[in-house]
């Protein structure tokens, strides 16, 4: 049964759909790239939510924490590690796609994809 607790997941999915919409419907290369970023962050947000538990603490063990009590209260750190890796990968993709878009702009003088079509499709 969906409850209020499920709302963040819905928002993550909504963000994902917004990103997809930008990729499908927008004609500007820069907006397409923004769509990619939104999709990526929607997935990251989703992963973050998976690791959350109500009232949890950040998964960083300090000298003051008793390990057993800490383990009982901390949120799942693994999705956060996954997100960090996904962010790094996203950064690489973003750098490459920006370089491509700039090169395309050099060639065509526009970011409009309807004017960039030498390929048959």
């Amino acid at each position: 049964m969906p409850t209020l607790d499920h709302l963040p997941y819905l928002f993550a999915m909504l963000l994902f759909v917004i990103g997809l919409y930008a990729i499908v419907a927008k004609k500007n290369l820069v907006k397409l790239i923004l769509g990619l970023i939104v999709i990526e962050y929607a997935v990251n947000l989703f992963l973050l939510l998976l690791g959350y538990r109500g009232g949890g603490v950040a998964p960083i063990l300090t000298r003051r924490d008793a390990p057993a009590e800490f383990l009982a209260r901390t949120v799942d750190p693994l999705p956060q590690a996954l997100i960090l890796t996904a962010i790094v990968i996203g950064l690489g993709t973003l750098a490459l796609v920006t370089a491509l878009a700039l090169r395309l702009y050099d060639r065509y003088g526009t970011f409009d994809i309807t004017e960039i079509k030498k390929l048959k499709g």
């Binding site: 750098a95 920006t98 370089a99 700039l102 050099d106 060639r107 065509y108 003088g109």
Partner: peptide
């Protein structure tokens, strides 16, 4: 590469 050197290697469109 994107902000500094690109202007050195820029070819005409």
């Amino acid at each position: 590469a994107l902000a500094v050197f690109r202007h050195l290697h820029q070819r005409s469109a």
